[in-house]
Design a protein around this nucleic acid. Sequence first.
DNA 1: TTTTTTGTGAGACGCGCGTATCGTATTGAC
DNA 2: GTCAATACGATACGCGCGTCTCACAAAAAA
Lengths: 215, 215
Amino acid sequence: MNVSRQQDAGAGAERGPRARTRRLMLETATRLMQSGSTPSVSEVAEAAQVSRATAYRYFPSQAALVHAVVDEALGPILTWQSRSKNAERRVAALIDTAMPRIETFEATFKAALKLSLEQWAQRQAGTLGAEPEFARGHRKVLLQDAVAPLEGRLPPKVHRRLVQSLSLIFGVELVIILKDMWGLGSAEMLSVAQWAASAMVRAAEAEALNEEVKS
Amino acid sequence: MNVSRQQDAGAGAERGPRARTRRLMLETATRLMQSGSTPSVSEVAEAAQVSRATAYRYFPSQAALVHAVVDEALGPILTWQSRSKNAERRVAALIDTAMPRIETFEATFKAALKLSLEQWAQRQAGTLGAEPEFARGHRKVLLQDAVAPLEGRLPPKVHRRLVQSLSLIFGVELVIILKDMWGLGSAEMLSVAQWAASAMVRAAEAEALNEEVKS
DNA sequence: TTTTTTGTGAGACGCGCGTATCGTATTGAC
DNA sequence: GTCAATACGATACGCGCGTCTCACAAAAAA
């Protein structure tokens, strides 16, 4: 078999009809999701004017579709970097940058959370075919980086606990609880998140200070 | 029409074959859910040895089923009361009481969250038939009650923000982030939650103190 | 006991998702 | 231009969910 025309399906393949159709579907899916819905593969196929069969060749399931759109939406957040050297400020800046983006892609991130819950349930039931295992761990590295200035100044245990606590007030969950459950607006949500984040960072710093005094 | 035999379908109706079958299904569903899965109405019907048609008469959808089981699981938490007068201690006690219960019914609460996300998506898409609107607001009153001792001592705005912040670190979301995402155990999860809660309560108290000094 | 109401079971139906199998059109190599 | 590889479309199938209808059984009312 001649494999000279074989196109690598990996991330580097940006040319050819395959990449073109994939882009078309991805953009259609993104557009549909931003307008609120969580389209099925069939719906995206119809909106993108491709056959259902073709659509399923690129995205075997709704999960794969959402996964791809999430990666798109996450892009600008993951490469973001703060210039400040103050941990509290860095965390605040991260929240200010990431949350509006998450709000813009609210439906997408909620769909991702929904899918991760679905996969968890299937894993519990034993009905699972070694799926790609939804990521959902980006906030760990982002927050870790944001509080990096405290790296040496805090005991490892306190440092880790701080990051874990911060990860509780960062992500779609924030939107779900504060906007959907409490009925807050975007600005109020950010304000609450900022306050909670500051409280945590300061508490960790104070704790570290106490340890120093004791010794 | 003679309505003398009409049985009120409300909460007070605990007798008759209807109530019996309902109990049977509810207990079967609870059992299945605690073993991890999120059973469909058909699956519960089979496990409870009732006809599919009958099952659908009591619980028209999986959502109704999960809703009922959540109410069962929530019961002991909602009636719980702390004797302490110290807000920080009360919050800690609430977390210590509620979280293990939530862990026990982990699959149920995750299913409830999943369903609320589903309903949100349908609401966005406009495809909605005026459903019962999943509650998911119990934590508000629980936390409100826990921090009640601070009611008068804190400015209303600070008080409200404290409760909203606490609601971020209380519920299934805690399990999802700390256990599933971080891989923590139950004890570690509780420890992180307690630390974060304390940090928030103390920060609110300190803030109130500062306001007093200023004036 | 007879009658009527009420709960239940069995089965058929439509619907949407995911899969598989065709035939056809487009593409790039020679 | 010719030919093979590849991408695409149309269609059919199985499956599970949710709904509906009809017949039967059980219980209460007459």
